[in-house]
Nucleic acid binder design. Structure first.
Lengths: 252, 252
DNA sequence: GGGTTTCCTTGATTCAAATCAAATTGTCGT
DNA sequence: ACGACAATTTGATTTGAATCAAGGAAACCC
């Protein structure tokens, strides 16, 4: 739980016009609201960095002074209760924009779950950028709406789905997202640990593990390695995720 | 579960410049982004209506063609699973803006839980309005961010809090919101049924009822009527809501 | 104003997932 | 290749909330 201040981060190559042009994340990020001609302006205020697993760059309750755009790797966003109970509210990958807050303080903590790269924007500089590129603000509103829809879906999961349905939903969503990003494979990667999956789904490590094992023994998935899952029956998984299981273990 | 089409709604007084000026909800709604001089323009595209308890005006999965602004009363927003399990993702009161969606279809259902008044905006008309009043778009982004923060808080509740903590959080939040709206009383009103509270907190009716009874027998609240709660110890309630209960029933 | 319906409360019992407790596997540094 | 540690799986037991099952209290409607 080391913050930026407690451990110096490795700063990537100094700000240059090229890093925005070459940025892997640009095509799926809000940055694509800015035309190629103006990328220099974006690059001038973007502050690229690299972080390792475990590094915290947004901390719940701290003053919200910076905004971030993940350009590679995955981070987890979470909230905690004083006794240590944790709820991961989402995972954010390449292209994701973070830190948007009306309030003066961050509402959640953000931590790298694998080595990542990100761009930092200071509040006043982003403000200027938003004023100069109204399209950027529209894109931000769009992404906020999409996140709201995802949050509602997650509330349904946390409030009303069984452990089985939660794990199926998780796999199905991961599958959907990765295939939206081009990969048409039925093999999905899980950069997060079982503990992180559990904290995301409102379950315990044991329940997540048992449920995956169960899916495997039912022949619905394969677990070739710790961080990979192969979906042997994606359609069945979608049904379970939607709460339409032909009852826990059907008698076919 | 009657939709707008299935039962005709009572249309309020015809669109006139005055209804926006006199609107109770204006000071807390996104509409306050529009100056008093331009209210006529707003009134021209706003379509006021009255709805009764139980009427659905946004339905999950249906084409997202309209936007709504609640001007009086309370609505519930929910998602459902095919077998009838329901998760209420939020309650929206006067001033709340609804229906914002990037997608072509609504992601949730909205239903009046008491007689309400609202303003309807068609998608193209709202688009024009947004283009003419950039401040409106900024306000929408702000409210979306606030809702995102609330959604994350609710995920923490649904994923990690006990029944006791959930009910305490619900009462504490209601109290906080009503006092933000002026009322400094420790008496809060609950326009929703126990079933709706349960569907909001991811619990059953029985658990909500038992928990409230328990708080009452512990001397922390009073239940003067079915839809009113008096907080006798607001500070204690906040502690329980935050997960810092001095253990379920302390031995004082 | 009496009967019906709906909502709420209370009690007994069950159950899904949590907790407690090892055993196993995988990873990393040396 | 070898320990040491961390992550995961698996098993036994407990438990908080769900479910099942009545009662009671408002609100609603002829």
């Amino acid at each position: 739980m080391n913050t930026l201040s407690s451990r110096p981060v490795i700063v990537a190559k100094p700000s240059s016009a090229s890093h925005c042009i070459e940025c892997d994340a640009r095509h799926r990020s809000v940055c694509n609201a800015i035309g190629e001609r103006d990328l220099e302006r974006l690059a001038a205020v973007a502050n690229p960095r690299k972080l390792e697993r475990g590094q915290v760059f947004i901390e719940e309750g701290r003053p919200a002074i910076d905004f971030f755009n993940i350009t590679s790797g995955t981070v987890k966003l979470y909230k905690m209760l004083p006794d240590g109970r944790q709820q991961i509210t989402g995972f954010a990958g390449s292209g994701h924009f973070l830190g948007l807050a009306v309030s003066e303080t961050y509402a959640f903590t953000a931590e790298a779950i694998e080595p990542i790269e990100l761009c930092r924007f200071s509040r006043p500089k982003l403000r200027t950028l938003l004023d100069d590129f109204p399209a950027l603000e529209k894109r931000l509103l769009e992404t906020a709406c999409n996140e709201l829809v995802a949050a509602q879906e997650q509330m349904l999961l946390l409030g009303r789905k069984t452990a089985r349905e939660r794990v199926a939903s998780f796999l199905a969503t991961r599958h959907g997202e990765s295939s939206a990003c081009g990969k048409l494979s039925d093999r999905i990667s899980l950069p997060m640990t079982r503990a992180e999956i559990a904290d995301y789904l409102g379950l315990t490590i044991e329940t997540v593990s048992r449920t995956l094992t169960r899916f495997k023994s039912e022949g619905k998935i394969a677990l070739p390695s710790r961080d990979e899952v192969e979906l042997l029956d994606p359609h069945w998984l979608l049904d379970v995720a939607a709460g339409q299981d032909s009852h826990t273990a059907s008698f076919v």
